[in-house]
Nucleic acid binder design. Structure first.
Lengths: 348, 348
DNA sequence: TATTAGCACTCTATTGCTATGAGTGCTAAT
DNA sequence: ATTAGCACTCATAGCAATAGAGTGCTAATA
């Protein structure tokens, strides 16, 4: 349903004001602060109608209006205009060192810190999953006695290692032979293909290598499964800055939610498919602990394909304009850094 | 200074009571709840003296007594008796799955969760440092173009990897040669020794390997330097359960402190040298953000040598008896698991 | 007909006041 | 040395009065 121009302007002003100050705004103040050329009485009528339509509400009879989740939704979808506030960000940028490429792990951690610092909210970054990853190399290192370390490398440089214990001792020399053999068999295949392959091979091979084979299989699985380690959280304490979390109960449940990385993963992964920024407001979030919070999420890419997500968790009353910009900026930054890191010589 | 028996009993009861209930205790209630065979008036006198001596204080004139940090200190040092409350722990144990050995990283993460769950406080675990670690193997894997992944393995199974970009392309074959060469040169030397060695070698070697050498050097350094990754925090939200952190400011600063892993590292590492349990009460902590908090810390071992620390951060008013037991238990558990993992065939 | 001024009404937040009671410290009696 | 008794302190809860922000409605106005 399209709102009349005047109604839209009022709604926008109310939300702008509430986001800025955090206190409900009444007709008087609204008339004074923004000049609509309308009296407070008229605004009162308009606001009453907006309330009836479900965009606004007020905490009690003699209080000003605040937006409902629905109101925020409308605000985000149609009212917000990300006009040239880029300068606004760039001010902060100058103070916050952006993440620099390097180890993937570091990059993700730094990105989450960066995002948190700029947004003044808790930031969550999900590291790239490896659907594109291909087998590159496997290495067996004999440590002591019968302990063998399996090191599994994908073409994107992800290293997964796993310590196993064999039933009997084995020479490093034999391990090397086996490694070379596997390299030849598996190189350039996708992770799912090699798992298939390993299963086939396991049926043919001699007993001693069986366990090695089996564990290599496991390791290749774990590259994709070690999900919770992929979640990077930055600046969780930032959300304490917001007065709306003075309520200790609310806060506790939020922190609990932040600790549950698996849930976070699912929460953010919902949007991994789509490009661009998504905003989930208050009750739109699936987990009840998130009531009163909003998510601003974006996916990031390497090359052309979307490979991960990052976003921000903050109070429903957050500075959407700014946060949306920051999330967008960070997503693009991370994409760029990953490009530099992985894509450079991809023509293989 | 030794306290008279009666004074000690009173002090102990006051602290016990305050720890249990969280409310200041007055002479009347004290006389009623514990039977000293003394009237409230006498207790009043005793408490007044204990206050003069610095063990107790009261928040305002007409309130009951609460312990000072000094009082807690005395309590910990001489009053607390860890009598058979082990059963008490074991109750919880049955509900909390203990960490199981496996990947070192997982073990540490699980240990921090475990400790947090049992102690109802935030738990911090510092992963083993590697002063004992010896060079085991280095592997170079060519990824794409001029990208080379350096994988560095120590004798304890720690794997450190590092992605570098060379000035010119190099064949996997040459990398292998170099790897074999380094293995021969460096095996069984301690990390500091090999750094020394690498520096020497760098002066002799041909240009192309220079950069590899240099980066290998770096990697060996980083095994010991990647400190912040060694800090595992579990159950930070637990501290919100405590009423004393209703004060939002206090809480915020505490959370900030928990996010600063580097600080945590330094904080806990102070006790790494000593064996057994250490308790740092309130103002004894070096960081002002920790005012109102206590630490209970223990080191853990692998074999005979102390290699890491773990502990708990909670409010000054914590259940020391229980927490001390839990920390002790966890430290021993971790030691045991590490033993199983590393020491099995150490007779080398 | 849309807008506005005016007014009665509602509800919160603040303030000041007054018990209430838990607890102390001191003194004198035991 | 211990205790009973008493005056005193101070946080807390409850209560009433007030101020102020804001609404909704009605009647006047352009």
């Amino acid at each position: 349903m399209e709102l009349e121009e005047r109604y839209r302007r009022v709604l926008q002003s109310v939300i702008d004001s509430y986001i800025a100050t955090g206190i409900p705004i009444g007709s008087h103040v609204l008339a004074r602060r923004y000049d609509f050329g309308l009296s407070s009485a008229t605004l009162r009528n308009i606001m009453a109608e907006l309330e009836e339509m479900g965009y606004l509400t007020h905490p009690h009879t003699s209080a000003g209006r605040i937006p409902t989740d629905w109101g925020y939704r409308y605000y985000i979808d149609t009212l917000i205009s990300i006009h040239n506030e880029t300068d606004d960000i760039e001010d902060h940028l100058r103070q916050t060192p952006p993440p620099h490429s390097g180890d993937l792990h570091e990059l993700m951690a730094e990105a989450s810190q960066f995002l948190a610092a700029l947004s003044h909210c808790a930031a969550v970054v999900i590291a790239p999953s490896e659907p594109e990853g291909r087998y590159r190399h496997v290495e067996f290192v004999r440590l002591r006695g019968r302990q063998v370390l399996i090191i599994f490398v994908t073409s994107t440089g992800i290293v997964q290692n796993k310590l196993i214990e064999l039933d009997e001792s084995i020479q490093q020399h034999d391990l090397n032979t086996f490694s070379v053999y596997l390299d030849e068999e598996l190189v350039h295949h996708s992770l799912s293909e090699i798992r298939q392959r390993l299963v086939e091979k396991m049926n043919e091979e001699k007993r001693l290598f069986m366990r090695l084979m089996e564990q290599t299989y496991r390791a290749s699985q774990e590259v994709q499964e070690r999900d919770v380690e992929k979640v990077y959280i930055g600046g969780a304490s930032q959300i304490l800055e917001n007065p709306e979390f003075a309520n200790v109960d609310k806060m506790r449940s939020l922190f609990k939610a932040l600790e549950d990385k698996y849930k976070l993963l699912k929460l953010l992964d919902r949007s991994v498919a789509a490009e661009g920024i998504k905003v989930f407001i208050g009750s739109e979030n699936p987990y009840f602990e998130m009531q009163g919070c909003s998510l601003v999420v974006s996916s990031y890419k390497a090359g052309e394909s979307i490979i991960g997500t990052l976003g921000v968790i903050g109070p429903t009353r957050m500075k959407y304009r700014q946060v949306i910009q920051v999330v967008d900026y960070t997503a693009k930054l991370v994409s760029k850094l990953l490009d530099e890191r992985f894509q450079k010589g991809i023509k293989r």
